[in-house]
């Protein structure tokens, strides 16, 4: 459960009784209109903000019960994020942005650098590794952001409107990459207000007024 209180107003419940289980190797798509609570759901699942009740369990560990520092470490180890606005650090090069994920996971520098280059090459942006985010196109930025999200091979990958700022071609690249992560064994949750990702999903849900409902084309997993 999660609610916000507007200044001087009554609390607004943005998540209400949501129960979502995504097994490894599955991609779950949460559709919903703007303001329906889907981004908040992703934030709570990703430990980016606290809920007033309920649990977040990743790989059998109840990570929502951990302390602040332990939650920070859990985010670095277990969870990768892809944001709609990419959220690359403008003062870092593309390569350094990717390597940022390794810094907080205390991963060996050389190994991380090698893997980061592999990922950048896989997504066609290796030649842009020394460029800064403002020098990259939106599609390139999202691919760099994706490389950062998967650098540590997190078992849980969360994507908030990952194609929202991309053209169709780049959107397809990112959706395929998310699908590939699921095939590789990660649990992937994508939230979107567009239905163009339905084809890539193993399970589709709808968020309406803070409640999660199963969608029509669910092929696995589901609210329980």
């Amino acid at each position: 459960m999660k609610s916000y209180r507007a200044p001087g107003g009554a609390p607004i419940r943005v998540l209400d009784g949501v129960d979502l289980a995504v097994p490894r190797g599955r991609l779950a798509l949460v559709l919903g209109a703007s303001g329906s609570g889907k981004s908040t759901l992703l934030n709570v699942v990703g430990l980016l903000e606290d809920a007033e009740g309920g649990d977040v369990i990743v790989g059998g560990e109840r990570v929502s019960a951990l302390g602040r520092s332990a939650q920070g470490r859990a985010r670095g180890r277990y969870i990768g994020f892809v944001f709609q606005s990419f959220l690359l650090l403008p003062s870092l090069t593309a390569l350094d942005n990717v390597l940022l994920a390794a810094r907080y996971a205390r991963r060996a520098r050389l190994d991380a650098r090698r893997r980061a280059r592999e990922l950048l090459a896989e997504f066609g942006v290796l030649e842009r590794q020394a460029h800064y985010p403002p020098q990259l196109s939106g599609g390139e930025q999202q691919r760099v952001a994706f490389c950062r999200a998967v650098l540590n091979d997190p078992p849980l990958l969360l994507a908030d409107e990952p194609t929202g700022n991309l053209d169709d071609a780049n959107g397809r690249v990112i959706l395929e990459a998310l699908r590939a992560r699921a095939r590789a064994g990660a649990a992937v949750v994508v939230v979107s207000h567009r239905a163009d990702a339905v084809g890539a999903a193993d399970a589709v849900y709808h968020m309406r007024e803070g409640r999660l409902e199963p969608g029509p084309s669910t092929s696995g997993g589901g609210p329980s």
């Binding site: 990703g46 520092s69 920070g72 470490r73 985010r75 959220l87 940022l100 907080y104």
Partner: peptide, 16 residues
């Protein structure tokens, strides 16, 4: 502040 939020999302602890 946004950069710090991103770093925390990537696993930075308060101390780090």
């Amino acid at each position: 502040i946004r950069d710090f939020g991103v770093k925390r999302a990537l696993g930075a602890t308060d101390w780090q």
